[in-house]
């Protein structure tokens, strides 16, 4: 019997034009992901991690093959439908946080809910819940410029999680953080993954992140070279 996966990737190829020719960033990727996974694409720079994450996030399209996210073929979505998919089901966390600089912490976290046209009372509750998860209830009026790197990333996590998406895509989320902040953020994400059953997909080459992964997919030159399930201490 065929299993219904959250994400299915078949023979994915992604080429980018460079000069007169083409650069192949991803070559023949086949992967599936289930609900509640805590998975990371691991590999050196240029291995295709971010490209793969962008395609899953419908920010980019495959050159060949298919990527099915929550029953939608990413390559066949027009820009509007791709935007709706991201708005309803996907959360993004970026290496440089990408917080809206003129918004307060509260407004940054509230933003995805405004796009979902959620009513004001539900919105307020959801934002406050998200800020409780990340421990930033005392900073709701602060602007991103007034926060530390760790706090900014916690706001970014709250913003990604506030709408309780099915999938969160995190691109090098700890690259700009010190060790203590990295561990705090990762523990928080792991907790949210376990409590809300949200699928987290990372693109990283940071050992601190790798230690927390439950599944590690190693990429090299655009190809999957290893896909391993990592047993926790309890499972061992």
């Amino acid at each position: 019997m065929e299993q219904n996966f959250l994400i299915t990737i078949n023979n994915l190829v992604k080429n980018f034009p460079i000069g007169g020719g083409e650069f192949t960033a991803l070559n023949g990727i086949n992967l599936t992901f289930n609900t509640g996974e805590f998975v990371g694409f691991v590999g050196p720079s240029g291995s295709g991690k971010t490209t793969l994450l962008n395609i899953i996030g419908s920010l980019d399209t495959p050159s060949e093959g298919s990527v099915n996210v929550l029953g939608r073929e990413v390559g066949k979505l027009n820009t509007k439908k791709a935007a709706i998919l991201r708005r309803q089901h996907l959360g993004f966390i970026f290496q440089t946080y990408n917080l809206l600089p003129v918004y307060s912490v509260y407004e940054n976290v509230e933003f995805p809910l405004l796009l979902l046209k959620m009513n004001a009372s539900e919105r307020k509750k959801a934002v406050m819940d998200a800020l409780v998860w990340v421990g930033l209830t005392d900073k709701i009026k602060s602007r991103p410029a007034q926060l530390s790197g760790g706090e900014c990333q916690r706001v970014a996590v709250a913003r990604a999680m506030v709408k309780k998406p099915k999938i969160v895509l995190a691109d090098e989320p700890t690259a700009n953080l010190d060790a203590a902040n990295s561990h705090n953020i990762l523990k928080m994400m792991l907790k949210l993954n376990e409590e809300l059953k949200t699928t987290f997909i990372f693109a990283t080459h940071d050992d601190k992140v790798i230690k927390y992964l439950k599944r590690k997919i190693s990429l090299e030159d655009g190809k999957v070279i290893q896909d391993e399930i990592i047993k926790t201490n309890k499972e061992k």
Binding site: G57, L59, T79, K80, A83, I84, L85, R86, R87, Q88, L90, F92, F94, T96, N98, L99, L100, P101, F111, P112, L115, R159
Partner: peptide, 16 residues
């Protein structure tokens, strides 16, 4: 640009 990219990533359409 970064802000615009973020808007799009969070689900705003180009028209929006």
């Amino acid at each position: 640009q970064k802000e615009i990219g973020t808007y799009i990533a969070m689900g705003m359409t180009r028209k929006q």
